[in-house]
């Protein structure tokens, strides 16, 4: 019983944290769910990099710890896991709930690979338009965003460091716009901006603020720092390519 409770708690906590939930949501969800499935008392500390969980069963305290690695953001999973914790009835068996959690986690992503590629191109193009571009800039932004996604996904599967991936993403955005400019003349700045907007750590910043406000200062500050470093990495990638291009005699 205690093993199942702890296993359920840690799997659920890890999944929610990786999918991009705020700390208070993870902690609330775990406490609510584990109390429904038999724990007398639940103490949980969730951070972006690890989770500490204690449950009291018949007066005895059991504790487990789990290191959380990097996952991919998936808001559908956050929604579904959150809804699951509310729909489970009191007295449910932890192993049954764990099976439901596993079903949600193994479900295919909300959008297929090709849809994602289409979406990233649309987003890149639309951002280029939003910042004042025309049709050509939108096209260049779409191509750039698509290339950025391909490069970042490729580096991601190789297990490259997150900041290096974002640096490469920024560089790809700049390089693709500059190269495309040789063939089709356009305003490279707008195309680059459109492409890098798809990399912006918006969810990370949101979560950082919400964590800090809800009193989870540890993850608030660490997420804020991460968002800062991610932004610097993207900008650094763009800047490196721009400087290199200029020093090789290219026009921007």
């Amino acid at each position: 019983m205690k093993d199942e409770l702890l296993r359920l708690g840690l799997s659920l906590g890890e999944a929610m944290m990786q999918a991009g939930a705020e700390v208070y949501r993870v902690e609330d969800t775990l406490a609510r769910l584990l109390q429904k499935t038999g724990a007398e008392e639940v103490q949980v500390i969730a951070t972006p990099t690890g989770i500490y969980l204690s449950v009291t069963l018949q007066g005895e305290v059991h504790t487990a710890v789990k290191r959380i690695g990097r996952g991919s953001i998936d808001l559908s999973k956050v929604c579904e896991l959150n809804a699951l914790s509310r729909s489970v009835g009191a007295g449910a068996y932890p192993s049954d709930v764990l099976r439901d959690v596993k079903t949600i986690l193994t479900r295919p992503p909300e959008y297929a690979k090709w849809q994602q590629s289409l979406l990233v191109a649309v987003a890149g193009g639309a951002f280029a338009l939003l910042f004042g571009g025309g049709v050509v800039e939108a096209f260049a932004g779409a191509v750039g965003a698509l290339l950025v996604q391909v490069i970042c996904a490729g580096l991601g599967t190789l297990g490259t460091n997150r900041f290096l991936v974002d640096f490469a993403g920024g560089g790809t955005a700049a390089l693709s716009a500059l190269l495309l400019n040789l063939a089709i003349s356009h305003k490279t700045d707008l195309a680059i901006i459109g492409a890098i907007m798809t990399l912006v750590p918006g969810l990370l910043l949101t979560n950082a603020i919400r964590d800090a406000l809800s009193g989870n200062l540890l993850s608030g500050t660490s997420r804020l720092l991460e968002a800062f470093f991610v932004s610097i990495s993207i900008a650094g990638g763009v800047g490196a390519v721009l400087s290199l291009w200029r020093s090789l005699g290219g026009l921007i």
Binding site: I73, D74, P109, Q116, A123, A126, F127, L129
Partner: peptide, 20 residues
């Protein structure tokens, strides 16, 4: 309108639920 297209396609990159 451009903003609507940009933001809705952006959240879909984060696997936002279809009905949202």
């Amino acid at each position: 309108i451009t903003c609507f297209v940009a933001t809705s396609s952006f959240v879909m990159l984060f696997d936002a639920p279809r009905r949202a």
